[in-house]
Design a protein around this nucleic acid. Structure first.
Length: 280
RNA sequence: UUCGAUCAUACUCCA
């Protein structure tokens, strides 16, 4: 069964769904029966390809087959419903979990929090975050990143920093995403100075900011019309060995065009092509 | 050891 599960998983990932379903039938001939893993894989797959009803039908099949949905199943379903914009259904499902005596785990809470954030219900997301802590479920770096991102997006940098502080207090290690999210938030709010400080701090700590952090900054300068600063960053990132990517070039070229500096834009485009990057 | 969370975070398109 494990082997079949691996195969079904792989086939779903490469969009060879019919073959995956074929194996679902075929596995029985090898005296293997589908288990909860098998169903979870298929449920997730159908949600990912936006076939919500098909996904739910596999939940039914799973139950008929004698497997009650487990934590992963619930998480998969809740996440799928959120991504399909059916937030209320997801919430119902969440409540249902409790009634069935299943505790949602970090993954499930994070899914729902992310769903709320995406629908701009950041306030509720934060309430749920507090709720999970109250229930003894420990938020991880992903949970924090989701909320930090949401606070940044809504311009609430003070809450974003509050969450960041809280990570420190609870000794949840920040990751690249955390850093990039904060840098981008600062840039979007026009506080390039703080963003710079943050980047420098990272470098001082012996870490290397990645291309996304730099691109956020470059974008920030572009939006402020400070192309000289943008280009300074562009050259300095190359000096420390970070290669600009297509997105970085898009930012520069886009603003150059909007400023009517087409010749410079074209020369940058050539520079980009010379590096083997393909314009998109 | 076979399943789930940041449509993982950056650009463009009054999307």
């Amino acid at each position: 069964t494990s082997l079949y599960n691996s195969l079904i998983y792989g086939l779903c990932k490469v969009a060879r769904e019919d073959e995956a379903l074929g194996l679902l039938v075929g596995m029985r001939r090898s005296r293997c029966v589908p288990d909860a893993f098998t169903y979870n894989i298929l449920i997730d797959h159908f949600f990912k390809v936006k076939r919500v009803n098909k996904a739910l039908s596999f939940v039914c099949k799973m139950i008929q087959d004698g497997y009650f949905p487990n934590q992963v199943t619930f998480c998969t379903v809740i996440n799928g419903l959120c991504n399909a914009g059916k937030l209320d259904k997801a919430w119902d499902c969440f409540q249902y979990m409790f009634r069935k005596g299943l505790q949602p785990d970090v993954f499930t809470y994070s899914s729902l929090i992310a769903g709320l954030c995406r629908s701009n219900r950041v306030r509720e997301a934060f309430a749920l975050f507090s709720q999970m802590e109250g229930r003894g479920c420990v938020p991880n770096v992903v949970t924090y990143n989701i909320l930090i991102c949401a606070f940044c997006r809504t311009g609430n940098m003070s809450m974003a920093f509050q969450m960041l502080d809280k990570m420190g207090i609870k000794s949840v290690k920040t990751d690249e995403v955390t850093c990039n999210t904060i840098v981008d938030g600062l840039c979007k709010s026009g506080d390039l100075a703080s963003a710079h400080l943050l980047i420098n701090k990272i470098i001082d700590e012996g870490m290397i900011p990645n291309v996304i952090a730099y691109s956020s900054m470059i974008n920030g300068y572009c939006k402020l019309g400070k192309m000289d600063e943008a280009f300074k960053l562009y050259t300095s990132m190359e000096m420390i060995g970070i290669s600009p990517n297509v997105v970085t070039y898009n930012m520069l070229i886009d603003t150059l065009c909007k400023e009517g500096k087409f010749n410079i834009a074209l020369s940058i485009l050539d520079e980009m092509k010379a590096k083997g990057l393909v314009p998109d």
